[in-house]
Amino acid sequence: MSKSRKLIFYATLLYTLLILYFMFFAFGRGDTAADQYTFIFELDNFLKLPNPSELFPPTLMDLVGWGNTAAFIPFGILIPWLYGVKFVRFMLGFFASILVLETVQALTLLGSFDINDALQNSVGAAIGFAAYAIGKRVQNVKKSLAVMAVSVALLLAANWTVGFGVDWVIAEKPGPFVALNEWENGGGSSAENVEPRPFEIGGQTVMPEFNLYGAEDRKTKTYRYKLDDKASYFYLQYGIPDSGDFEGSIRVSVNGQEVLSNSEQYQQHAPDVFEWHFDQPAELTLTLEGGEQAWDVGYRKLQHRWE
């Protein structure tokens, strides 16, 4: 083995050991081992790198996002430089190796198996291989390394741009507001909202736009609604009007789990806003007591740009 090949071999070995250290032991993995196996197979736009506006100052997760791609670029340069392997064979072997390491991370409870990480790692290796293929055409070693460095920067920028383009196209955004005007009451029959009317809270005039709910005769009243959409945001505003005694409470439950509980003891003399994100169909329960009012209750369904 020539001197240059020995240098490349030892550089590859040392860099591999460094990557393995970060994958299994860095960031306090041994001290904060998971208590269950975690396998993530859902794709989450693996091309996307951190937004420039989010990098000032950079957080640990920003660095991880960059590292998942950039840290594996050297493998795409060193391994084909050392063994002269073809692109398809290199990528198949690299991706298989990453899947094995991700699996070991999960089974040893030192991390999780995340298909997005494996794909990001592979994108980095592919960028390195492409940069090596471009740079090796230059005979002068120093110029070849310079060409590789420039190629890596340009390919990273291209990957970044494509990632944001994909995200822009497929990202789901909240759609039009849908008011919830037909609930079921505690007895299972239809319970419509009362006619919206203006009232004051803390001297501020409130004019509900879509609906208004309250407890009749200042007693407890419960409303139920089944939300069939898988991904949406639920909204409502609430408060205790100035008229009458300042007493009342509100509770919101999702599939039997309470997500909002507030009463006059903790409320301010001002309207308040509540928002909750759903990622699956759910049954909503809204319970009002005393003088508590809830208005403009509804949701926005998450949808793609073309919907």
Rank of each mutant, 00 (worst) to 15 (best):
S122I: 08
F25Q: 11
K143Y: 04
S232D: 13
Y238R: 03
R300M: 08
A215E: 05
L92C: 09
R29K: 13
K136R: 14
S122Q: 04
T69D: 05
L18P: 10
G165K: 00
S4P: 11
E184A: 12
Y132S: 03
L101S: 15
A153W: 09
G76A: 06
Q105G: 12
P241Q: 09
A130V: 12
M1F: 10
A70H: 06
L101F: 14
F164L: 02
Q268A: 08
D296I: 01
N51R: 11
Q120S: 10
K48M: 10
N68L: 06
A33Y: 09
E264N: 11
R224I: 08
V166Y: 06
A118T: 03
P196H: 07
A33C: 09
G165Y: 01
R197L: 08
S263G: 14
K86Y: 03
D62G: 07
K221N: 14
I201W: 02
E195Q: 02
V152N: 00
V259M: 03
S263A: 09
T69E: 01
M91R: 10
F75Y: 04
V166G: 02
L20F: 13
V85H: 07
G67H: 02
L145N: 01
N262C: 11
K219N: 12
G84P: 08
R251I: 14
T287C: 09
I73L: 04
P196R: 02
S97C: 14
F95T: 12
P174L: 05
A191G: 05
P57D: 10
W160V: 02
R300F: 04
A294G: 08
F94L: 00
G135H: 04
D279L: 13
F41Q: 02
S189V: 15
A71L: 12
F41S: 03
N211T: 00
I77H: 03
D44N: 10
Q303Y: 12
L17S: 14
S253Y: 08
D279A: 15
I134G: 08
M1T: 09
T38R: 13
I127E: 09
E195H: 00
E289Q: 15
R29Y: 08
H269C: 02
F94S: 01
W183F: 01
F90G: 05
D35V: 03
T59H: 14
L7E: 02
L284F: 07
V259K: 05
E192Y: 12
G93I: 05
L107M: 10
G186R: 14
F46I: 03
L7W: 10
D228E: 15
E247G: 11
